[in-house]
Computed example of a mutant assay.
Amino acid sequence: MRKLALLLALGALATPAIAKDSLGVYSDWAAFRDGDVANCYAIAKATNRELGVAYATVASWPKRGIRNQVHIRLSREAPSSGRVRVRVGRTGFNLIAQGRNAWAEDRQMNAAIVAALRSANSMQVRVRGFTDRYNLAGVATAMDAAVIGCSQAS
């Protein structure tokens, strides 16, 4: 029952597109394939419920040559002068933010974040005034399922 509720909640978070195919729920993460735009993604909701809805995705768009791109939807809007810092395990990165969205500065940083996700237990996204927290149980399997799901759809 918990997994079904998580699956439904995570599916609802995948805005603006609605996922077409579930690729599985892996502990705190789930994977989906959206055939209309030919993308697949792993997604998790932040664990801190007192803030607004926040989630993290790791997405692939095979037709665009994009694999495992990290995107963070913040629980609140980042101040224009505010710094967004993600800490994955013991490794930290400064992200580029616009409104409630944050991304890695470049492909190298993105790859480093994905590598850190595979070996850490938790992730915190800090912005002046608030922190969004994530459990990383299942993230590696969900990312792999998303990549495989899109490779099978191509």
Score class of each variant (00 low, 15 high):
136 L>R: 06
54 A>R: 00
32 F>P: 09
111 A>R: 03
19 A>S: 11
112 A>F: 00
53 V>P: 10
68 N>G: 08
20 K>R: 13
154 S>W: 03
32 F>D: 07
154 S>D: 13
109 M>V: 15
14 A>S: 13
132 D>A: 04
113 I>P: 05
24 G>A: 02
134 Y>P: 06
1 M>A: 13
64 R>S: 14
119 S>R: 02
12 A>N: 14
60 S>L: 05
35 G>W: 04
73 R>M: 09
68 N>V: 06
3 K>W: 07
81 S>K: 12
103 W>T: 13
31 A>L: 06
90 R>Y: 07
136 L>N: 09
72 I>M: 12
103 W>V: 15
121 N>L: 06
27 S>K: 15
59 A>C: 09
16 P>I: 12
121 N>R: 09
116 A>H: 06
63 K>M: 10
130 F>G: 01
57 T>R: 11
12 A>Y: 11
67 R>Q: 11
30 A>V: 03
3 K>P: 04
20 K>Y: 05
125 V>S: 02
129 G>I: 09
7 L>T: 01
38 A>K: 05
144 D>K: 03
116 A>I: 10
86 V>C: 07
11 G>Y: 05
88 V>H: 00
22 S>P: 12
49 R>N: 12
60 S>M: 04
18 I>H: 10
105 E>S: 15
81 S>G: 15
75 S>K: 01
107 R>S: 14
132 D>N: 14
139 V>P: 11
51 L>W: 06
109 M>Y: 00
71 H>Q: 11
51 L>T: 03
97 A>K: 07
51 L>V: 02
139 V>G: 08
74 L>D: 06
20 K>C: 07
16 P>M: 08
12 A>I: 07
56 A>F: 05
122 S>K: 02
70 V>L: 13
109 M>F: 01
90 R>W: 06
89 G>W: 00
47 T>Q: 13
126 R>Y: 03
1 M>D: 07
